[in-house]
Amino acid sequence: MGRVDRITDEHPMNEQKPKILVLATESCAYPGADYVGQIHASYPSNTYILRVPAPVIFPEAFYLRCFEKGIAGIIVMACGHECPYEGAYDRLARRVAVVRTRMRELGMDPQRLRLCSICTVCARPFLKEIHEMDAFLSQATTGSVTT
């Protein structure tokens, strides 16, 4: 992975805040995040939202890799039971639970990974999830929680 490290932020080290990765479903949560922008509600900028048709695609190892690489927290924002792919949501929920167990075994705080359902106009729940994760991670970096 030597090649991507040539991003040139002006102050490369100045993002001290732990990074939050948001995996947002194409049909619900991603438009939901757009909606939050459309109403100009603000939330911390250490959030990186990636669009995904169905987060069920990610194997357990993917989450662990992300943490290893330096992502502090992951929020999987799914469609819940409005999921367009049959059976996918239940599998996703199960997988997230497995990853959280694994995290506990590895001595990581499982709260760094969350799963929630966000609809296309769910601004409030979206902001709540982001703020909670951000608050949790800030607290964690000050030492009171193991990350």
Binding site: S27, C28, P31, E82, C119, T120, V121, C122
Partner: peptide, 10 residues
């Protein structure tokens, strides 16, 4: 009980 916008916007 699904969100109306989520069905209508697509």
């Amino acid at each position: 009980l699904d969100c109306s916008s989520c069905i209508c916007t697509p």
